[in-house]
Design a protein around this nucleic acid. Sequence first.
DNA 1: TAACTTGAGTGGGATAAAGTGGTAAATTAT
DNA 2: ATAATTTACCACTTTATCCCACTCAAGTTA
Lengths: 144, 144
Amino acid sequence: MLIGEYKHTLDEKKRISIPSKFRTVLGKKVVITKGLDNCLSMYPLKDWNKIAMQLGELSFTQSDARNFNRFLLASAHEVSIDSAGRILIPDNLCSFANIKSKAVFAGIYNRVEIWDETAWEEFNEKVSKNADQIAEKLGEIGAI
Amino acid sequence: MLIGEYKHTLDEKKRISIPSKFRTVLGKKVVITKGLDNCLSMYPLKDWNKIAMQLGELSFTQSDARNFNRFLLASAHEVSIDSAGRILIPDNLCSFANIKSKAVFAGIYNRVEIWDETAWEEFNEKVSKNADQIAEKLGEIGAI
DNA sequence: TAACTTGAGTGGGATAAAGTGGTAAATTAT
DNA sequence: ATAATTTACCACTTTATCCCACTCAAGTTA
């Protein structure tokens, strides 16, 4: 399971180390794609294949499905983890997530999110303020 | 699987490099045709045959099907990838997609779309605004 | 407690491949 | 037959990939 929060630095070649705790779960190849709230999502290759297959089956004649696929599939990149446990973040994803030098890896069960450091901090601040309200909402749903 | 987004330049001879990541999947010959939303669609030759067959089976008495076939089949060109990994984009398709010098290749599962750079950017901006709808669909698939 | 060991994180350089531009040959058209 | 357009081939520049090396921190052993 992918859990925990780690901070790493992006070097001038757009390379960044994967937290060592994640490496065995992620395997040798991963897929990175655009996530929500301007972060990036990273999946083990085999998990991604399942997701992509479902996306690929969406009708291409319907404009919603078409646009949806373009957003998700076109922004996805298969990257391999090098001998030092690093990945190369593609240019367009790097600028999408606004990652400058420090990035945060957040393990979220079956995927890893990659955030720009300051974006992560701002997000965290916002969420912790509303944590009690969120908890209440979740309680109503019966989640906790 | 064809995924990812790459930007290449069209030279004065209307030649353009295929992203290297796509070459093994696409093979030596591909079919380019008009796509929806003013882009071009590119398929591996063997996949195209299946698609064309399905289209051909659409009732030709229905004017919609007839027009759709005219749109897709009549504009299709079989082009081969040269030794440097480039293709030659036919004139009418080039002007249809309004490709001037920079073009974006977008891998979308089983096809590659070719967009004029600015058209792609505008499109992306528009879609990113519908992030909540995207999130909902992703939730259904079980990706988030 | 000090030295040694191990592994993670980071940086840089060499080599290979990708991307692009151009020239020569061949085919077609006039 | 000659001009023009197209196709194939060659060459250069830039970019990416791979490999090696250093540093730092944590843990282990003498």
